[in-house]
Structure formats: C-alpha cells, structure tokens
Design a protein around this nucleic acid. Structure first.
Lengths: 253, 253
DNA sequence: ATTCTGTACCTGTCTAGACAGGTATGTCGG
DNA sequence: CCGACATACCTGTCTAGACAGGTACAGAAT
C-alpha cells in the first residue's frame, strides 16, 4: 500500500475531491471490486496525507453516489450495482421547457365548475369553481406534451392572465424562487392516448404515453393545483445508470 | 432571534440531526419560505450552541434533500418546490422482489443464437451464443412482471443452473454483495403489451405497461446481460414528492 | 456621476485531536 | 468445549480554530 497518487495542493480541485476521484478510479479499474473493503479512514489519511475529515468527506461523496457503503465498526465496502437502487429524474422534461425552441400554447383557460374527479383531488365542493388550463407544449413546432391543470379559484384574489401562461409553467418546472406552493406530490404513469389527447398531439389514439400527474399544496396543506402532463412515450427519456460507469462526473461539487 | 429549541444533549438523536430537524420544522411551518435566507452558519452556531461543522452538517442534510440551497458568499436559502427536480426510484420493484409472497417461475432458460437486436445490444456476432431466460414474477399467485434476459454465453465457464433462478434476480435487484457486473444502464419506457406478453401476464394485448430495460457490463466494459421487465402499469408505483411534505423522515441517518 | 477599493459578512475547505460506540477476535476461566 | 471478558480496530460524532474566496455595499478617488 503505497502513496500512488499524492494530492496536488496547487490544483484547483480540492483535496477531498481528489481523494474521492482517486478511490473511484481504483474501483473503476477493478482494483477494488464489489464487496471488497476499502482501506480504513486512518489508512487513507496516511496514504494521501490529509486529515480524517477530508477522507470522510471523500467517502461521503462515494456513499452519496451509491458507489460504496459503510458499516459502523467494520469498514467501507464497494457496493455492487443494484437495479433496484436506480433512480430516474425529470431532467429531460426540464430541458424541454428550458429549451428556447419549445413553445407553450394555451388552448383553454377558463373558470369552470369542477368535475367529480377534480373535486376529489382538490378537496373542493360542487359550489366552488376551479380554473381549468390546457396547454400544448411544442418542440420545434411539433406538439410534444399536452398539459391540463386545475387551480382552486379564489374570487378574492383574481389572478393575472400571465400567471396561467408560460411563466407559470416554467416556475412549476424549473427554479421558481417564489411560488405559492409548499410541496407537491407527483406520480408517473404509463398510459395510452385518448382520442382527445391524440388529436392535440397529432398522434393516433391508443399510442403508449407518459402521464405525469402532479398535485401541489399551499402552506396550509390544502391542495391548490392538480394536473397532468401527457405525452408520447418517446419524448421523455428516463434513463439512468447503476454502479460506476465513468469517472469524469465525480469532480463537480 | 432567540434560542427557541435548545439541543438535547442527552437525546439519542445527534445534535446535527436535531438542528436539521429544527430548521426543517421552521420551513414547514412557513416561518421561512421559498427564497428566504436562513440564519447564517455563525448565527445558527450561537442559536443552537453547537460548533460550525455541526451546523454545516445539518445544512448539508437539507441541501441533499432539496429543501434549501447555498450560495457561496451570500447565504443559505429555501428552495421552491420544482416539478422538474423530482426523482423516481424502483423501490416498489425492489419491495416486490423482496416480498416473501412473490414467486419467480422460470418459463425458459436455454442457449440460443442471438437475434439481431440481441446481437446489437450485447455486441456479439452471429456465431456466438447467448443464454435466453424468461421469468414470470407473481405476487400472491397473480402474474405481475414478465422478464426476459439474455446473457453472453461463455463456454469456458458453464454456469450453474441456480444462477439463472430466483437468486440471480434478487442479486440483480437488491444488494448482491458479489456480482460480476461493473455497472448497468437502465431505461424506463411506457409501452403496451404484445400478445405474447399479455398471455404470460393474463392480460389483454394493448394494455399500457411499464418496460424496464437493463444492460449490464463487466469490468472490461463489455455488455454481458441485456433484458427487460414488462408489467402492468398499475403494478409499479412511481410516486414522489417535491418540497417539504413532512418532518418525520428527516431523523434517520 | 462613475469607478475603484476597502471592509464586513458569508460559505467553502482543512486541520488535529478527542470521545463514543459497534465489530471482530483472541484469551482466560469455568 | 464454551461463555465472558479484554482488546484492537473501525466508523460516527463533535470541537475550536484557521484560512481562502465569493458577495455586497459603503466610501474614497477619479
């Protein structure tokens, strides 16, 4: 066990990241394999000539990435890639909305009495009203997603037209900074296009599609917005990796 | 700004977790809202009477959960819930396989010449052979998932029958400890059941379904296993939350 | 009025050491 | 043979302090 890769103190990359990258490389190389125990923190301190907190931070990075796991009193071990540990994110949906070539057209925005389903979702009675918004998201002129949203209508605070537009959607998806929501629940479904949805998207009914259902709550835990994104299954990319595919990504904070 | 909740030094919950929970509660209460700046680390040190590293660990927990974000030189701010930041995991698939009521039946396991698609996925030529495995996962007697897998056949190392069975699948999904894979790529698709798939699952063709496609690589970055899980869309739960739904979950390590 | 600069404040990073508690293992006494 | 105990090693947690570098703002120089 020798000091194979000493820390470059003049580098812009801080030591904890260099240590993490070094260990990651050894795992990728196969020097340490699934189940193997890594050198103890004290040993790594000596190997890289850094303090223990720095080593622990490096290890914490690898733990966070699912590359290794620690057991109290035993050591740090390389984790085997697990299919069940995979996570998928909505990155491609976010990219779609952030893309300049994406346009949002509001096909409908009016105050309606709530349907039974909307009543149940938004926990409102039949006498109240909701704002129904339907949008079509297009990328490069081609319709990609059909979005329906129902907002609890508050007659005391009439909303500005702009709030239903593109900005509101962008705030919902990307960083809002200021949104009236406390939290939201999301569900991902596999479904098929109805005739209405297919007509909006220029596809054929029965085609397999994604449904992203979202329900947002205000600070009093009352539901205020319920809606669904519906789009062709090939327009959203849910792909991910388990294990240690490459090293390049471990550097950024 | 007073010491509202002093740290309980006799509690089993370590101080860093108590601090994180305290700040989380204040955010949930609406005391701090999206965009607001939290007290600086030095202020939190004084408020809770702990060292700065303890405060930083607490903040790091909240950052990891997406509750707050930090900006160098400016401070720590409450993050607004973003739909685009949502992540989905395969927890329900893992639970399904871990469940004692789940059975795995191998409907086929034999050495076959690879189809063009399998040849492409596994990067093998037409002269080589692959092991084709088809499994049906049932929960409480009811078929839930249909799994097809193709393994590169290595004649030098004939595999044990058991490796194709339930154990191999469990290792693939839950913690394996020792697997021959270095990493894997996963893709989630929305699709519809073909006639073959529907017959295995006791459903009707055309029904919307999940497809989880997986491709695993060995330590020489060569693909060794390609396969797909196919199942009814209502048998996998892809639900998640954005923002701060509740406080109870912040305690565990 | 504009630009530059110092300063206060903030997060980011690192150190050296300390104690607690879990884990594995060997030894000793029964 | 076997259980109890001591011990070495490991990760988990915390402290007090230090320096670096980014940010914002007020005041000085132009």
């Amino acid at each position: 066990m020798s000091k194979l890769k000493p820390i470059d103190r003049s580098s812009f990359e801080p030591p904890y990241s260099q240590v993490a990258r070094g260990m990651r490389e050894r795992i990728v190389d196969g020097q340490y394999r699934a189940g193997d125990r890594l050198p103890s923190e004290a040993e790594l301190c000596a190997l890289y000539d850094v303090s223990r907190m720095t080593v622990r931070r490096a290890v914490a990075l690898l733990v966070q990435d699912g590359v290794v796991f620690t057991e109290n009193g035993r050591g740090t071990f390389v984790r085997a890639p697990e299919l069940g540990a995979a996570t998928f994110d909505l990155g491609s949906l976010r990219r779609l909305v952030d893309d300049a070539a994406t346009t949002v057209k509001i096909s409908e925005a009016r105050i309606v009495p709530p349907s039974p389903r909307v009543r149940r979702k938004l926990a409102v009675d039949a006498e109240s009203h909701v704002v129904a918004i339907r949008r079509v998201l297009s990328s490069a002129g081609e319709p990609v997603f059909y979005h329906t949203e129902y907002l609890v209508f508050d007659p005391r605070r009439p909303l500005v037209e702009a709030e239903y537009g593109v900005t509101a959607l962008r705030d919902l998806l990307a960083n809002a900074g200021k949104s009236g929501f406390k939290y939201g629940r999301l569900q991902l479904h596999a479904s098929t296009l109805t005739e209405t949805e297919a007509s909006y998207l220029g596809e054929e009914p029965g085609m397999s599609a994604w449904v992203i259902e979202h329900l947002f709550f205000d600070f009093e835990d009352r539901p205020v917005s319920w809606g669904r994104f519906i789009g062709r299954s090939d327009r959203l990319d849910f792909s991910t990796t388990v294990g240690v595919p490459d090293v390049g990504k471990g550097a950024g904070e």
